[in-house]
């Protein structure tokens, strides 16, 4: 039994990239069970991406970070007239790193931090976007940093600023699940053909 499992796992590992490759080049014919599992996986990914810890910085071309979530009460743009500017890192205005250090502030209501702190690129808009809209964006190489979906999953798993979403410091509700689980949801969903909701 153990050997069978081992072989299955190995086969899966060997074959998975193949699935991704096929996902990019040839439309997959997903079966019905896969489709509902894929939809479920995507909805979890959407829960993460639309969560304030992520969406607050995946903002439109007004370049204004948002303050939203249970700890803020009402939703607003970042206080003190802070704007990320076109650079998305505050070069034209005030550098994000002026206040945001490499780690979260220990003080209640102090600034969160991460080794890198900046707005997501403008094309990676998630703020007030629907599940369908984010789904289409994440699959579009012109809007996801030129990534394959495997690379997207990898990015979620490895990137320090992305990780901050699950370790946002005192008083802030973390994004749901974890970086690894979210990467796995992306992988599963991608394997099933990355279907977007209607």
């Amino acid at each position: 039994m153990k050997i069978k499992l081992f072989l299955l796992k190995t086969a899966a590992l060997i074959l998975m990239p193949a699935f991704f490759a096929t996902a990019q080049s040839v439309p997959v014919q997903p079966d019905e069970i896969s489709q509902s599992r894929a939809a479920e996986a995507w909805s979890k990914v959407y829960q993460v991406f639309s969560h304030p810890r992520c969406a607050n910085c995946h903002v439109p071309d007004d370049n204004l970070p948002r303050w939203s979530g249970p700890s803020y009460g009402k939703t607003s743009v970042h206080g003190m007239n802070i704007s990320g500017g076109q650079s998305r890192i505050g070069v034209e205005t005030v550098m994000c790193s002026t206040c945001h250090a490499h780690s979260n502030s220990d003080e209640p209501h102090g600034p969160p931090g991460s080794p890198v702190w900046m707005l997501a690129p403008v094309e990676m808009l998630w703020w007030q976007q629907s599940s369908k809209q984010i789904c289409e964006q994440i699959k579009d190489p012109t809007r996801n940093g030129g990534r394959t979906l495997e690379e997207v999953a990898h990015h979620i798993q490895e990137d320090e600023l992305v990780h901050w979403g699950w370790d946002p410091g005192k008083g802030r509700e973390p994004a749901p699940y974890s970086a690894k689980e979210t990467a796995d949801f992306v992988t599963l969903w991608a394997n099933a053909g990355a279907p977007c909701p209607e």
Partner: peptide, 24 residues
């Protein structure tokens, strides 16, 4: 304030502004 909301602590680090109250 101690939470980077007033700017009274501002210094430069390598010429870049920083709120020293929030920089370990």
């Amino acid at each position: 304030c101690g939470i980077a909301m007033c700017g009274a602590c501002t210094v430069h680090i390598n010429g870049q502004p920083a709120r020293s109250c929030s920089m370990p």
